[in-house]
């Protein structure tokens, strides 16, 4: 078994053995994070451009750390203040990056499909999707499954994962459902009907309107971030009411399996989708997810950025 991908646009490009290989390599990368010297020369001489058209702190910093720990040269290209605001097209930006010698482009964009477009326009650089619209966020999904996988003796078979919150606007949830299901877990979605897409079945997950039933017997409860501007759009009444009905507090968590993991992609809204007692509780994997993100992205960059085909 070897890794033949040069890009990662979404998790549906990966087979189960490929995903397991990536997770296994991430374990070795995570070992590096405990060392006084975390930097290795594996990507020495490679140039990675982090091309972020939307603000992002943790995903960008996580990619940047992964790139730096592997010894790559890193350029952060933020859309605000760049040539994009002067009217440069995406195609011209892509060609500019290539002319600068980029070996890889990590892209975050509000428009779904942008990473696919970039891969088409770039001749040799690897493309990594760091989130496109409400479409996909494959590295978040990989770090999420990795975090549970390593805590569950490297197997997700038969696990029940409840994802609660704003599924409609979430790029995380689409990739996460695919990744968890690929590894044999069952996924239940919960949240207000107004924040739920019409065709949840198409994702391969069950929609359970009652949050208590959704978390019943769950091995992991994954809370999605509630963007407060959604209340202004009338999609839910108030933060307090959201919290009472859908928020993960100790009472809701008591319905899940004993010791069920608590997860969140961050940044968290305390008192809205999650209570502080749960976010900071003994079963919370939220900070472990952050650490896992660096390891998983190191494994991905390493595997995708080798030499050219002979």
């Amino acid at each position: 078994m070897s890794w033949m991908h040069r890009h990662l646009l979404d998790v549906d490009a990966l087979s189960r053995p490929e995903m397991e290989l990536l997770l296994d390599q991430a374990v070795h990368m995570e070992d590096l994070l405990d060392r006084p010297i975390k930097k290795v020369p594996a990507l020495r001489g490679k140039l990675v451009v982090n091309l972020f058209f939307e603000p992002s702190t943790r995903t960008r910093v996580s990619f940047e750390l992964a790139e730096k720990f592997l010894g790559a040269d890193v350029v952060n290209w933020a859309a605000s203040g760049s040539s994009t605001s002067k009217g440069e097209t995406l195609r011209d930006t892509a060609w500019t990056l290539e002319a600068m010698g980029a070996d890889a482009v990590v892209v975050r964009h509000g428009m779904p499909g942008v990473p696919w477009y970039l891969r088409e326009k770039l001749r040799k650089a690897s493309v990594f999707n760091a989130g496109d619209g409400a479409h996909a966020h494959p590295t978040q999904a990989l770090l999420d499954v990795y975090t549970v996988w390593k805590h569950c003796n490297r197997s997700l078979d038969g696990l029940r994962v409840a994802i609660v919150g704003d599924v409609l606007h979430s790029r995380v949830v689409r990739s996460d459902v695919q990744a968890f299901r690929l590894l044999g877990a069952e996924v239940v979605l919960a949240g207000p009907r107004t924040l739920m897409p019409l065709e949840t079945d198409a994702l391969g997950a069950v929609y359970e309107p009652d949050p208590v039933k959704a978390v019943e017997g769950a091995d992991a409860v994954y809370l999605l971030r509630i963007q407060k501007e959604r209340a202004l759009e009338g999609l839910y009444p108030t933060d307090d009411e959201y919290h009472r009905r859908w928020g993960a507090d100790e009472e809701l968590m008591a319905r899940a399996k004993k010791g069920a993991f608590v997860m969140h992609p961050g940044p968290i809204n305390r008192g809205v989708e999650i209570a502080s007692a749960v976010a900071d509780g003994p079963n919370s994997l939220i900070l472990d997810q952050v650490r896992s993100g660096v390891a998983v992205r190191m494994a991905l960059l390493y595997l995708c950025m080798g030499g050219m085909e002979a």
Partner: peptide
């Protein structure tokens, strides 16, 4: 030889 090898 990492930049010469494929796959890694």
């Amino acid at each position: 030889d990492l930049s010469l090898r494929y796959p890694q």
